[in-house]
Design a protein around this nucleic acid. Structure first.
Lengths: 320, 320
DNA sequence: TCAAAAGTGTTATCCTTACACCCATGT
DNA sequence: ACATGGGTGTAAGGATAACACTTTTGA
C-alpha cells in the first residue's frame, strides 16, 4: 500500500555460472582481489543502465568474463542483514539476487577462465564414485553432537534436530539430490561451515572436524547450493541439460553430464531407453572414434520437443 | 566483484496471501486508497527494522490485515524498470520481491477481510466446471490475430508465436495447470491485458475483445499468476495443501481444495486411493454430518510424513 | 587378442487409469 | 422413499527397475 517510505538499498546480482568440463560440473569463480577466498561473479544492479535484471546480468558477465550466457534463471533473493558482513563493515543493506546460468565451454584448454569444480565447495554432494567419506568421518559425528545438545527443538516446520539430521544426511536410501540447499543450511545452522563464523554461529566442533568443503565469500556457497539443487530438480522436467552439451554428443557423454549434475551414477540401459522413448534426441548419423573402444553414435537435441512436450526432462531415478 | 558503486533502490515486498473459503481459492486484496483497482498487500522492506524479508513480511501483514501467516515462500524478484510506472511517475527504481503465503480463514462470515476469488483475475485458469468459455470466445481469436502478424518470430527459447499460442491455450489435452505465469505473460506480450497499456504495449484488440479478467495495480497480476503456478506445482510434491485446511477435514473437502487450486476436477477414487496409500492423512475417528448425505469421516494431516517422505504431495494427474 | 566402451532384450513388479456400483444418513 | 453425497473393488495397460550379454573398435 504505502510507497512513500523509501529505504535506499543496494541491489546486487550474483550468478552461479555452470559449465561441464570433462564430465565435471564447474562454476565460474571471480578473481577475488583479496585472493583469500573463492567468490561467485557478482555486480551491482544499476536500474538506470539496465532495464531488467537479466539484461544487467548478461552485460557485466560478458564484460568481466567474456562468457556469453545461454540459459539464465533467477534463483532466490537474499536479504539477510549481515549477509555481507565483513570485519569493520556495519550493516551494508545489500540485497542480492542470485542467478543460475548455463554455458558451454569450448574446451578446457583454450579457456583460462577460472572455472572450478563445484564439488570442491560441497563435497558431500558427490556420490558418483562412492558415498562421500566426509559424511561418515566428519559431518555425522559433528551433527550428532549438535543434535544431542537439543534433540527435540523443532524448526519452523516442526521437525526436530534429530529428524533433520537423519533426513538430510543419515538416510542414504532417501538421500535426495535436490536438497542441496537444505543440507548446506543445516550445516550452517549447526555452525559447521566457515561462513557461520562471521555470523557468530560457529560451533567449537568446526575446529575439531576441520573445514567441510572450501568456503566462499559472503553467502556465495549458499547461492551455489541453491543453484545445484535447482538445476538438479529442473533437469528432471525440462530439457535444460542440453544447454550444457555441445551440438553433437554421445549418449554416454549425456549420461555423464546428468550424473555430474545430479551427483549420482545412473543405470545405463534405462537411461538410454528413456532418452530414446522420450525422443528427446536424434542421431546425427555421425560417429566419434574418440571413445577408447567401439565408436559411439553422435546425437543432437531435438528442439521440436520444446513444443511437443515442454516437460521433457531426463530421468534420473535409477542408480547404475 | 565491485561493491563500490551503490545505486539506491527501494525494495518492497508483495504477497499473494491465499486462503480457501467454501472451496474457492481466495487472495487477500489490499484496500487500495484510490479504490480503482485491486492490489496485493505490499509494503517496503526496511532493513533497519527487520533482519530478513520474511520477518518484515510477516510483521506488516499482521499489522495491516490481522492475518497470521502460516507457510511463506519467496516467489520471484521483479526488477523491471517501469513496473510501477503510473501516470506522472518516472522511473521509480523499485525492486519488488514477490511472496506466496498460505493461511487459514476461520470461517467466511466472521472475516470481513477483503478476500477475493483468484479466478476473477485469471478466469482462463479455472477449468473445474468446464473449459473457460473466455478462451474460445476472446483469447484465441485475439491471440491468433496477434500471432498471424508475425507467426514465425521466435522468442528467447526459439519458439514461434504460433507455437506458443498452441502450447499454452489451444492444446486442451496438454493444458498444464502449472503454466499460469506463462499464459499471463503471453497475454501481456500480446498486449491483451489492461496492464500492458501502461507499458505502451496494448493491442487494439484489447478494445474489441474487452478485458480479459480483472486487472490489478502495478504488476500484481503477474505476481498472482506466479503464485498460482508455484502453488499448483508445489502441491504435487510437498504436503503444503494442509496449510490451507482446518485441523480436521473430510476427504471430499481435501479434494475440493486440491481442485480449487489446480483449477481442474479430479477422479474421486484415485484421489482417495492415493491419499490413503501415501498415508498422508489419518482418520480422527470423528464424523461430520454436515454433508447433505451420508456422514463423512474426518481426517487429519499426518505430520509424521514430513520426516517419512518429505516429498509427499497430492496426485493431481487424473481428471474426474 | 584383449581391453574398453558401445549398444541391446527380456521379465517381474508396481503404478496409473478407468470402469460402476453399494452405503448411510437427513428430509 | 428418495435425494445426496460418502465410500469401495477390480482389472487392463503401461511405465519402471532389475537382470547380463553381445558388438565393435583401437592398441
Amino acid at each position: 500500500m504505502s510507497h512513500d517510505q523509501r529505504t535506499p538499498i543496494e541491489v546486487n546480482l550474483t550468478a552461479a555460472i555452470v559449465a561441464i568440463v570433462e564430465d565435471e560440473p564447474m562454476i565460474l569463480v571471480a578473481d577475488d582481489a583479496t585472493g583469500r577466498m573463492a567468490a561467485l561473479p557478482s555486480g551491482p544492479f544499476d536500474p538506470v543502465a539496465h532495464r531488467t535484471f537479466e539484461i544487467g546480468l548478461r552485460e557485466w558477465v560478458r564484460e568481466q568474463t567474456g562468457a556469453p550466457l545461454g540459459y539464465v534463471e533467477q534463483l532466490y533473493t537474499f536479504g539477510d542483514r549481515g549477509r555481507n558482513a565483513q570485519a569493520g563493515d556495519r550493516d551494508p543493506h545489500v540485497v542480492s539476487v542470485g542467478y543460475l546460468a548455463l554455458t558451454r565451454v569450448a574446451s578446457e584448454s583454450d579457456e583460462r577462465a577460472p572455472y572450478r569444480g563445484w564439488y570442491a565447495f560441497l563435497p558431500w554432494e558427490d556420490w558418483r564414485v562412492r558415498k562421500p567419506p566426509i559424511i561418515e568421518e566428519k559431518i555425522l559425528p559433528a551433527l550428532e553432537t549438535w543434535a544431542a545438545r537439543d534433540p527435540d527443538r523443532p524448526n519452523a516446520y516442526g521437525l526436530s534436530r534429530t529428524e533433520r539430521v537423519r533426513m538430510l544426511f543419515s538416510d542414504d536410501k532417501n538421500f535426495s539430490d535436490e536438497n542441496a540447499l537444505d543440507r548446506y543450511q543445516l550445516l550452517y545452522e549447526a555452525g559447521l561451515v566457515e561462513e557461520a563464523r562471521r555470523d557468530g554461529r560457529a560451533s567449537p566442533l568446526i575446529d575439531e572436524a576441520g573445514p567441510l568443503g572450501e568456503p566462499m565469500r559472503h553467502d556465495h556457497r549458499r547461492i551455489l547450493a541453491t543453484a545445484i539443487g535447482r538445476l538438479r530438480a529442473k533437469m528432471k522436467y525440462r530439457p535444460v541439460i542440453f544447454e550444457l552439451m555441445p551440438p553433437a554428443f554421445t549418449l554416454t557423454a549425456l549420461q555423464r553430464t546428468a550424473e555430474a549434475i545430479s551427483g549420482r551414477t545412473l543405470h545405463k540401459q534405462n537411461f538410454r531407453r528413456f532418452v530414446e522413448t522420450a525422443a528427446v534426441v536424434e542421431p546425427t548419423g555421425e560417429f566419434t572414434h574418440h571413445t577408447g573402444g567401439r565408436p559411439a553414435a553422435l546425437f543432437r537435441f531435438r528442439r521440436e520437443v520444446l513444443q511437443e512436450r515442454p516437460a521433457a526432462g531426463l530421468r534420473v531415478g535409477v542408480r547404475g
